[in-house]
Computed example of a mutant assay.
Amino acid sequence: MSKNKDIFGEAAKAYYFNEDQTPITVKSPDFDDDTIPVAYLFRDYAEMPVLEQAALEMCEGTVLDVGCSVGSHSLYLQKKGLEVTGIDISEASVEIAKKRGFSQAQVQDFYKIENGRFDTLLFLMNGSGIIGRTENLPKFFQQCRKLLNENGKILMDSSDLIFLLDEEPEIFEEYYGEMQFQISWKDHSSEAFDWLYIDPETLKKAAEDNNFQCTIVKEGEHYDYLAELRPL
């Protein structure tokens, strides 16, 4: 099996150009395999979860859409008249975003951005996943602080995985929201990667430790939530 890391991009290109609806498979050592319909990446505002809709309505000023994929969130913000830049490490996804009309999509690693100041940093589709592990939280907040304008904010959604546990979280050696995934599509497979789901209280504590204020602005129907974080 080819270790092609741009799984989302290859699947998006096949869907966009050839209407290929082969889903993306998500594998984890802790759970059964799951699938992501590629059409989900192309959803419009009306098809988005309420937390994503709420986050988009809260965006202000200059926006950085981190993990913009094929540009669905950014295109909505662009239509609203906001100045939005989108970044993703998937070259093929960025190519599709541009073809869909989002010219400010860029291939870029969030942690390697050196220039640019934004009023809103947007992290959606379990945006906390980019943090990887709880030990990376200081690095995440440091980079956000560098990129935010004065009075800027972070909008990020995540989920508390406590509902999946059969035992109390205190007995786990590692934080229960630290997951490892591998994704595949047809004969392409990614390397395993870390992905963080973080509960609201842990996020609030990490924000406080890094001189940010965290407010849970909206809760979903199943342990998911939207957080607003502002530097102090």
Rank of each mutant, 00 (worst) to 15 (best):
I198M: 07
G67P: 13
Q142D: 15
F42H: 04
D88C: 08
I113W: 04
T25Q: 14
N115M: 02
Q143K: 15
K205R: 15
M48N: 04
M1I: 13
L56G: 01
K80W: 05
L77T: 04
E10C: 12
F181M: 02
P200S: 04
H222P: 00
L229D: 01
Q104N: 15
Y225L: 05
R230A: 03
L203W: 01
T202F: 11
E228G: 06
A192T: 13
D199G: 14
G152I: 02
Q142N: 13
G81I: 01
Y223V: 00
F141C: 03
Y176C: 10
N136W: 00
A55W: 09
H188A: 14
L64V: 08
Q213M: 10
G129Y: 09
I36Y: 08
N211F: 02
E19H: 13
T215F: 06
I216Q: 10
F141V: 03
L161M: 11
F212T: 03
L226F: 06
Y197T: 01
D166Q: 13
L124T: 02
N18F: 14
S90T: 01
D187Y: 09
Y40R: 08
Y15D: 05
P169N: 11
A92L: 13
Y16D: 04
K27P: 00
P37R: 01
E52P: 04
D33L: 00
